[in-house]
Design a protein around this nucleic acid. Structure first.
Lengths: 182, 182
DNA sequence: TCAAATGTTGGCCGATCGGTCAGCTAAGGT
DNA sequence: ACCTTAGCTGACCGATCGGCCAACATTTGA
């Protein structure tokens, strides 16, 4: 018992989220995760029932956060809703960089999994909120939604400090939607 | 000899580009492509030396197009270069929807393949062109570059006519970059 | 002190992957 | 009629995948 069960699970999830984000879910083997986490492949499957369970658990915190954002947006209308949606999405994307990347790049492998966040539904409702602030057509909103998640793809390459990145993402989003920036 | 060699190769590439775009390179097996193209797996490997060769060939037309765009941009400066870069990228992304999606989502599987377009280098030079028109910081340009490619991900879901999509993508890009729109 | 519980591992399994090969069919030239 | 060639295929191969299990190590509590 080198590490406690809690520590071991955390280490495995830490390795998995980095590797899934870098090489994709299908491009990462259990052996890859085990090597990175410093244990055997069999040990992974003692702490997690299977590979999918690892993915499900590391994405678990994201679902409720999106749901909470949707709840907040439901009470707003028009431009106010759109600005809140931008702020919320920028915040979530920065706080869950790797998870958002996984959600986007492996969306095909994740679709139709009831235990995971309903990406399509979430996207649809957020699109409604973003469109509320202007007559921004479908394509413009879609474009910005996609942009937000994918820019974090280049996590390692973007050397900007987090606050600068947050400000630029917010400004770019508002501009794309046709809303005034400070 | 059901189909001529030329027809067969074209059919295989047509199946492959759709399946790679939908399920990823790693998520598509040779058997999947063969079934879709209506032939045996062995027949694929008669027409193409291996799975990589299929990928290389269906991406082949994209590289020269990007290179040509870079060439045109090299003769321009400042805002003029940025506007030309936007127009060129929108055009390429619309004309090579599926290929662009593959390039983005499977970038990890494609990196360091000398026979394929140098994604990193292309991105870097286009980023320079886009930045030329304004003081647009790194993050804003990156964000829009990513957006452009990924929006085409939702090819099937976006029901907008191509001309509307082209206009909206162009307008959104110019706005994000802080350039005036018509 | 010694089980019982917890954590860990090497070795193994069936499935699937990309890729090979001998051999089949059909068309074309002579 | 015959042979060559191009096109195509079922069967098979080695490698790798996710997952399972018996056995072993370590800690814990009575």
């Amino acid at each position: 018992m080198a590490r406690s069960a809690t520590t071991m699970r955390a280490d495995i999830l830490d390795s998995a989220v980095r590797l899934f984000a870098a090489h994709g879910f299908r491009g990462t083997s259990l052996q890859d995760i085990a090597t990175d986490a410093g244990c055997s492949k069999a040990s992974l499957l003692y702490h997690f029932t299977n590979k999918d369970a690892i993915l499900t658990e590391l994405l678990a915190p994201v679902g409720p956060e999106f749901a909470a954002l949707e709840g907040r947006l439901a009470e707003l209308d028009g431009e106010e809703a759109a600005r809140a949606a931008v702020a919320g999405l920028v915040d979530l994307s920065l706080r869950f960089r790797l998870q958002v990347k996984i959600l986007l790049q492996d969306v095909d492998a994740l679709i139709n999994r009831p235990e995971l966040p309903d990406v399509d539904g979430i996207t649809e409702r957020l699109t409604d909120a973003l469109s509320g602030g202007s007559a921004a057509p479908q394509a413009r909103v879609w474009a910005w939604m996609a942009m937000l998640g994918i820019i974090l793809t280049s996590a390692g390459e973007l050397t900007l400090p987090e606050e600068t990145l947050r400000a630029e993402l917010t400004r770019g989003a508002l501009r794309t939607l046709g809303l005034q920036t400070d």
